[in-house]
Structures are given as C-alpha cells and as structure tokens.
Amino acid sequence: MRRYVTTRRLDRAFLELYRIYSFIIRFFKEAFLPPYEFKEIIKQCYEVGVRSLPLISVTGFIIGIVFTNQSRPSLSEFGATSWLPSLISIAIVRALAPLVTAIIAAGRVGSSIGAELGSMKVTEQIDAMEVSGTNPFNFLVVSRVLATTLMIPALMIYTMFVALMGAYVNVHQHELTSLTTYFGQVFSAISFLDIFSSLIKSFIFGFTVGMVGCYKGYYSSKGTEGVGKAANSAVVTAMFLVFIEELLAMQIINAIRAM
C-alpha cells in the first residue's frame, strides 16, 4: 500500500508542480543537445505558421477596422480624428497584435497540440517511441515548443501589418488619408521599444502556448475523455497565462519607458 507524505491531494499537487518544473527544465536541456529533429521542427513551423495565416489574416484585418471604427467617435468629439493613425498604431503594436496572435495560436495550435499528444498518449504511441529507444520528448515536445516560440513572433509581425492595413481601409474611407501619410503618422507614433517589447512578449507567448499544449497532452489521463480534457485545458491554461504575462510585461515595459 502506498504511503503519503502529507495528504493524497496535497501530495498530488506537489507532484504536479514538480512535474511542470521538470518538464520546463527538460525542454531547455534537450533543445540544445543533439539529436536535432530538424525535419520535424520545419514540419511543425509550417503547421503553426503557414496554416495559421488565413485565420490570422481575417482576424487581424477585422480587428484593425473595428478598433478604428470604435475609436473614431471619441476622438471626433474633440476634433482629433487626425490622431487616429497614431492611436491605432500604438494600440495595435503595443498590445493588440501580440495578444490577438497569442490567443488565436492558443485556440488553434495549443488545442491541436494538446489533442494530438493526448491521443498519442492514450494509444500508447508515446510509449512505443520510448521503448524503441527514441526520445519522444525531443521529437514531440522540443520540436513543437520551438515551432510555436519561433513562429508566433513572426505571425505577430504579420498581424501588426494586416491590422494596420485594416485600420487604413477605415481611415481612408472616412478621412481620405493617403497610404503614405497614414504610414508616416503610424511610424512617427511608435518607437523601437514598442516593436522590440512586442517581439519579446510574442516569444514568451509562443513558448507558453507550445509548452502548455505539450504538457497537457504529454501527461493527459488515459481514455478518450483525457484527450478532450487535454485539448480544452491546453487552451484555457494558455490563454490565462498569456493574459497574466501581458499584465506583467506591461508593468515592466512601462517602468523601462519611464526611466
């Protein structure tokens, strides 16, 4: 009979924390050591990056239009609609593009990673890799986490551009602003720190989405119910963590700006 150090629940909670810690440490150990699964990393980059483009394009473009449309009435009250490109660019570059990209990735990629690894766990495919002397962690986890960490920043840059184009369509329709003037105002409003901090945030968001999806799938409980739970929990946890990270990042970046 198994004996518990504290209580059954508390033991499990500590075990879970330890498992998360080991999972992250193991990723960093194995990501930099051979063998490198280049073929799988490229395949996953395609899955995360290229396959997300249609959804990102539509969402980014619509967000640009909607945000501009909703901001116009407030600015026009003060006769300041000419500030729209500056306002929109700051909002998109600093917060909307990284957040929207991460949330879409959590929904599309995080759930798919959670379900895929969960189903591989349930059907003993992960065990099969392990007993054939192959490292399933390197093949499945490292490749996927690297793909999300590298591709989500790239997608974020693309979202920025698409959202700014969506905003331009709306601005041009109402204020007849030319593309050159619009982008002139956009770039005068944003700084290197804005783009750099958003890129750093996106790397962190990408790492989080990949890590959570892989962790939930890799340790999903047995049975088909476990697969569903892994996919669902991957999305919910990743989104929650992304918002927390955004909040913390905002505080740090504002502190840097104030220096």
Binding site: Q125, A128, M129, G133, T134
Partner: peptide, 29 residues
C-alpha cells in the same frame, strides 16, 4: 535507451504512429 534497443515491445493496440505511413513507421526507429 541503449538497453531498449535490444527489447521489442508489441503493444496491445499496435501503437502505430497514425500520422505516418507503414514505411515511415518502420523507418522511424
């Protein structure tokens, strides 16, 4: 990992990698 190369494990549900063809399954290890 080295010891496992000398062990063959046939799983109850076969545990074939369902995203790969038969040849890719065999090629994998």
């Amino acid at each position: 990992q080295q010891l496992r190369l000398k062990l063959g494990f046939s799983f109850q549900n076969s545990a074939l990698y369902d995203s790969m063809t038969v040849a890719e399954n065999l090629e994998f290890p």
